[in-house]
Design a protein around this nucleic acid. Structure first.
Length: 717
DNA sequence: CATAGCCGCCTTTTT
DNA sequence: GGCGGCTATG
């Protein structure tokens, strides 16, 4: 690397870049250039004579990996370094060492929705009720176990209560189904890799020798499985460099273990620690607000945020009547920015829940402001996309029954439920797979002639697709789309399915891109890559559009102008995270992450009323707003419009009581009902004299009552 | 076997 | 307010 390019770095950054060998931990606040340090380190290593293929950098998202790879190239370094997420790295390792990892290389990767389908089967097979054991919750429970590398046999030892025992059965069945389908879920990718590395010293050595330098970004959000993989990979050479910021840990709910970063020095006793505290991103006002907020977290190590930018505009907190006014306000402000020459790609809107985007979208459309939503897996979870992908998946992995069952009668081709059950029974009795049973439908005596013919035709079609799986993907998808009649069925459905057709066309375009970028395109590789892909990865930073995303998706990004909306109690912090102190702290970190994305302009807004599940509800400003050290008005200009309301000055909820005859009840308030007794308010629906209140009574029952008839009295204070 | 319509369920964040 | 699943009907 040229010295001139090193001059772009601060002294602390240089220190981190230059320390090439041995364990290194970079603790760095937001906007301090930690990703930059990793990028420069890769270049510096190559500069020092390390072959690129000896370098393995792990990022948090595919998008981050892409950007890092490009930056390294732009620094004039030769390509060849492994730069990817943990999951992609694991796919690569598992495919190479499949036999040693007790898998086949052509495994299908199951995403959250496939997992839910599989889990449902597992619950049923365990002869348990899906209402007592909701598949989604069971999926999360199993996922948590797996991310901690707790196998069924290990869990067996600690499962002593009723629920755990049931969970164990479900877990076992779930794994069995996955194995039968030759499928791995996200957690398996990590778990299998971790056990492969720990259980096969020769494989571990081989990989340790290949990846002589391991660099991990966003280390605070690694889970236990990832931690064990990292440890195994670096065990032979100790060349591990991790960067992270405990204050930006926002994935605890997904198994991220903050202890990984806190205990780095114990794991690697001779670790060198570098702290980066200078912030090159945000103005002092923004940093002050961020610092005030995060200081409220008790469970944290003190860290400074030292501004380097000159002072500029104040952080603004806007109070709105409802979500529509909030959206209009926002659109108006962005419009003004654009008129003053700001590029729309410099503007971003963050929210806690995806559903908050809709109203914003509508306002932006109304004001003709182009935008893009950076959403999790929206695109790949569309029905038509999943259908096409299911066709493709069974081409490389015929054991994937989940995909096969999805499309055997999609579009309808006369192979109904009864026929499918008969095929299943036949396969089971003859100890063959479902797909094998389709080969000779005439052998399935329980089937009548019509379905037999249809099955034969279906089987022939699938086999026909199987020619040339190691060539370009785009033409294959096109062929599948047409020959499966999916295209025709969408066309016949008319107007409302036009989007669906366009989505498939978009998929074909993306596949063409893959074809042109990949040296040796293969369907297997394409599918395994795409399974780890999210919409956020295709987020385009160049186009002149406002970016809309969740606070989680905002991690790692930065924008000149940031709008954070819906700062209301129950939304941020989210009500599902309001029970434990730890959860509240994570919500606070989430807000912190959002704030620190802003370079110069930060606008935070909340609404006094918000429609929630179809009902207009009164909302309370987020407690976090009071922690920023910024004065704000709880009134908006046209406050009196729809509801007679607050006189300012008093705390919010109390002022509600004073103006109307009807008493109002805050969520969580303790009340007494003449017949049901004591209970706690779960929800208060403010509809004037028709207000209703939902109360969970101590008897266990939950009731929604009309306020004017229910003779409620407040207890306590 | 396919479809329409109804009911009840859930609804945080995502690699 | 949206979706999956179930049921009744053609």
């Amino acid at each position: 690397m040229q010295n001139s390019s090193m001059q772009a770095l601060t002294a602390a950054q240089k220190k981190a870049v230059k320390h090439l060998e041995g364990p290194l931990l970079v603790i760095a606040g937001p906007g301090s250039g930690k990703t930059r340090v990793i990028t420069y380190r890769i270049a510096a290593l190559i500069d020092a004579g390390v072959p690129p293929y000896n370098i393995c950098a792990v990022t948090f998202t595919n998008k981050a990996a892409d950007e890092m790879a490009q930056r390294v190239l732009r620094m004039g370094t030769p390509p060849g370094a492994q730069i990817s997420t943990f999951h992609s790295l694991c796919v690569r390792i598992l495919r190479e060492f499949a036999s040693r990892a007790d898998t086949k290389p052509n495994f299908t990767i199951y995403d959250a929705s496939d997992q839910a389908v599989t889990m449902k089967q597992a619950v049923k097979l365990s002869e348990l009720d899906t209402s007592n054991f909701p598949p989604a919750r069971m999926r999360d429970a199993v996922s948590t176990l797996k991310s901690r590398l707790i196998t069924t046999s290990q869990f067996e030892k600690q499962a002593d209560d009723f629920f755990s025992k049931a969970l164990l059965q479900i877990y076992k069945k779930y794994q069995k189904i996955l194995a039968e389908n030759n499928a791995l879920d996200f957690d398996d990718l990590l778990l299998k890799t971790a056990f492969l590395l720990e259980g096969s010293p020769d494989v571990c050595n081989k990989l340790g020798n290949r990846f002589k330098f391991l660099l991990i970004d966003e280390y605070q959000d690694t889970n236990h499985a990832q931690y064990r993989i990292a440890k195994a990979l670096a065990s032979s050479h100790n060349n591990i460099c991790a960067t992270g910021d405990p204050d930006q840990s926002i994935y605890r709910w997904r198994g991220a273990d903050i202890r990984n970063i806190l205990a780095f020095e114990e794991d690697w006793p001779d670790a060198k620690i570098v702290k980066l505290e200078k912030n090159f991103r945000s103005t002092p006002n923004i940093l002050k607000a961020a610092d005030n907020l995060i200081s409220e977290n008790q469970n944290r190590k003190l860290k400074k945020l030292v501004p380097t930018k000159p002072s500029a505009e104040e952080v603004e907190i806007t109070c709105c009547e409802d979500e529509f006014e909030e959206a209009d306000n926002l659109a108006e402000k962005i419009k003004k920015l654009a008129e003053n020459g700001t590029s729309l790609s410099d503007c971003a809107v963050f929210y806690r829940v995806n559903s908050a985007s809709r109203v914003i979208e509508e306002a932006l459309i109304k004001n003709k402001i182009p935008y893009q939503i950076v959403r999790g897996v929206e695109f790949y979870s569309r029905k038509e996309i999943r259908d096409i992908l299911a066709y493709l998946k069974i081409l490389v992995n015929p054991d994937d029954q989940t995909s096969l069952l999805r499309i055997i009668n999609t579009p309808p081709r006369g192979i109904g439920k009864t026929s499918i059950q008969r095929i299943r029974d036949y396969a089971l009795n003859n100890n063959i797979t479902f797909y094998e049973a389709l080969k000779k439908p005439d052998n399935i005596k329980t089937l009548s002639t019509a379905p037999r013919k249809k099955i034969a035709a279906f089987f022939g079609m699938i086999e026909g697709f199987k020619k040339n799986l190691d060539s370009e993907i785009a033409p294959l998808i096109e062929r599948v789309f047409v020959e499966s009649s999916l295209k025709k069925s969408l066309q016949d459905a008319g107007e409302e399915k036009i989007d669906a057709i366009q989505n498939v066309e978009e998929l074909i375009n993306a596949a063409a891109q893959y074809d042109s970028e990949t040296e040796k395109p293969s369907l297997l590789d394409y599918l395994q890559q795409i399974s780890l892909f999210t919409d956020a990865d295709s987020y385009d930073t160049i186009t002149n559009k406002v970016a809309l995303m969740t606070l989680h998706a905002a991690k790692g990004l930065e924008f000149e102008n940031v709008f954070i909306i819906a700062l209301e109690d129950g939304l941020l912090p989210h009500e599902r995270s309001s029970n434990e102190h730890d959860q509240i702290e994570e919500e606070r970190r989430l807000f912190f992450v959002g704030i620190t994305r802003a370079k110069s302009l930060l606008n935070i807004s909340f609404a006094k009323y918000r429609t929630f599940r179809g009902q207009l509800l009164r909302s309370i400003p987020s407690p976090f707003l009071y922690e920023l050290g910024i004065d704000f008005q709880e009134n908006s200009s046209n406050l009196q419009s729809r509801f007679s309301d607050t006189s300012s000055g008093e705390p919010y909820y109390e002022s509600l009581n004073s103006t109307e005859q009807q008493p109002r009840f805050r969520k969580g308030a303790l009340v007494r009902h003449p017949t049901f007794g004591l209970g706690r308010v779960q929800q208060f629906n403010d509809m004037g004299e028709n207000s209703t209140v939902t109360i969970k009574f101590n008897t266990g029952q939950t009731k929604t009552l009309m306020l004017k008839y229910a003779k409620l009295t407040k207890t306590g204070k």
